[in-house]
Design a protein around this nucleic acid. Structure first.
Lengths: 342, 342
DNA sequence: GCATCCTAAGATAACGTTATCTCAAGGATA
DNA sequence: TATCCTTGAGATAACGTTATCTTAGGATGC
């Protein structure tokens, strides 16, 4: 039986037993306890039993910090994403893949804030994580250069980092926009508008650019059809006003990301939403319950997350391998909103 | 200028400089570097400059693991929730509150799996986190008793843990169900059915019990109106069949959690959903865009998350304080689906 | 019967920090 | 001029592990 070890004086946290305490209790050397803890087979039956008894009696738990300090590796990778605690299938895939590789995941939210992102990344480096996956927010990541040189594996997800060269996994934005455009065009639409995120953001830039290219490829004029910028109710309202009430009004919309899609749906209201064809970029929660159900171009988020971990592990195993960028294709998911005729 | 320190042989991770290296580079003692790193004011200008230069030249970053080992505290708290990477406002609040308290958050998904939960919690104990918040899944948490006795602060969220006595913050489930029932009753409904999660789960038990109590309080019979169990499409379909096609069919529904609400909406389809009054327990994403918009009893998730961190910090500061359970009230959010008349 | 080899287990030195002493130099005080 | 603080800075011992040696003791080989 273990001695009662609670309440070592008010307000003070009781000390936990260490390997030394276990060794003393068991009457063996420190090294022997270490062997038992690490399942080293070269321990005799007698000592094995004594040590196990002592561990149970003292409720000993090895201190992971000391272990990691000594070992050099932490068995933990970091993920700096925009928001944990929001629907984030990439992060779910990262967590799942990491776990099945025996890696612990430390996830943190950059909250769309460049300074916060930097704090988190530096902190992860100080914690000597085995590697970092980042969904980059900031425009310049040059400050990571020393870390890369010091051998910290870093993989960027969803968009590349500027100022440094690191592995990257991202969706084929241009093809995705092309698919959305083509789908609406096939359903008879000729005036198709695009509303999307700011072009200061990499993905916003890529998608708007691809949309303009689609318009040009199909020989349509660009006038008043492409609206980009911060997503706010006012901006979306203004964009819709311009697009839908022009001399030649748009009959279909492509929305550049989930946030935009939701904002547009809110703005349109129930009546209008059933008259204008919409294809959203990115999956939207409960998209199938909306009226009409929402047609989207969906990123292969599971594959993106999985690939991010795989790229990271590859670099952890082989720090000097060539930098790689993986581009993942998207899928058109047909549900109704994109099939309304012009 | 720093010497090129990349590529120390293929496949091997280059060693990072340590405090000793910085001391040598700067020509001062190890202790002086430590003072500089920790902003100790008792360092002369000359040495301060030399050390700062050396730190920059070598790209030195303190090793957090060693620091924590020496200090005894990690400045990190753990959160074992059902799913990170899903909408989880409690977790968002925890992260926010932790950050503004200067604490790092380590979040992990138990994935509704008891064994996984146990793994995570034990791992967090081994990492000697400063405290743990857990949204309990398993039925017995007795294995945490030694950890509690060893001074590990643990707070449970959303439901209590059985087998041990720990601080807890949770919603006032009974009042919430009462509010939903009362609201529907006020709108003329007399046959009100409940569909909810398994009663093996604490919250499922509490909510179903409260619903039965409401029926009794209003003098209504319970026959065929209360349906609990694992949430699957078949089960929900069967429950709806029983409730809606009885001799005295239900005209209104209370759904016991978000998952159930969504399953019920999917099952009802668009036409039926606009004829049957529904009040959901828990907020649902895009609830305002549904048709009719969804009336819900919403938990004060932000307050729950914040309170969890506060309880944890209180126990970290004062390990021997009395165990506390905080019950948080809910809010009825009226949007349409709950105001359909009988 | 003695050298050799294997096995179990112990001493002890890292890992990279911070904390406790100690000490030297210099200015103030009697 | 001798003594006492004050201030800056260096040795060195933790923190709790794992890894490298070393050693004692019995089994094996010739």
């Amino acid at each position: 039986m273990s001695p009662a070890r609670s309440g070592t004086g008010a307000g003070t946290r009781p000390k936990r037993p260490t390997m030394v305490d276990v060794a003393r209790e068991a009457g063996v050397a420190l090294r022997t306890v270490s062997r038992v803890v690490n399942n080293d087979p070269t321990v005799g039956e007698k000592n094995l039993a004594k040590v196990q008894a002592a561990i149970a009696a003292l409720n000993y738990r090895p201190d992971e910090r000391a272990r990691q300090l000594r070992l050099g590796v932490t068995g933990t990778i970091g993920a700096a994403v925009r928001r944990i605690a929001e629907v984030n299938p990439e992060l779910a895939a990262i967590e799942h893949t990491a776990r099945s590789s025996g890696l612990t995941l430390l996830a943190a939210s950059t909250d769309f804030d460049e300074a916060r992102e930097r704090e988190i990344l530096i902190s992860m480096c100080r914690q000597r994580l085995d590697g970092i996956i980042v969904e980059p927010i900031g425009e310049s990541h040059g400050y990571l250069q020393p870390e890369l040189e010091a051998g910290m594996p870093v993989v960027s997800m969803d968009r590349p980092m500027s100022g440094i060269s690191a592995d990257c996994v991202m969706s084929d934005n241009a093809s995705g926009i092309g698919m959305a455009f083509h789908h609406l065009h096939q359903h008879g639409h000729r005036r198709i508008a695009y509303i999307g995120d700011s072009e200061r953001v990499f993905s916003g830039r890529e998608r708007a650019g691809a949309f303009r290219a689609s318009l040009r490829a199909y020989g349509e004029p660009l006038d008043g059809l492409v609206h980009t910028g911060e997503i706010t109710a006012q901006r979306v309202a203004a964009a819709l006003e311009t697009a839908l009430h022009a001399a030649q009004p748009a009959t279909a919309l492509v929305t550049g990301n989930m946030e935009t899609t939701i904002a547009v749906l809110r703005q349109l209201g129930r009546d209008q939403a059933s008259r204008i064809a919409i294809v959203g970029f990115d999956e939207v929660p409960l998209a199938d319950l909306l009226q009409p159900a929402l047609t989207v171009v969906a990123q292969d988020t599971a594959r993106i997350g999985r690939t991010a971990v795989e790229l990271l592990r590859a670099r952890m195993a082989e720090p000097d391998r060539a930098v790689e960028t993986v581009v993942v294709p998207l899928d058109l998911i047909v549900r109704g909103s994109g099939e309304l005729r012009a």
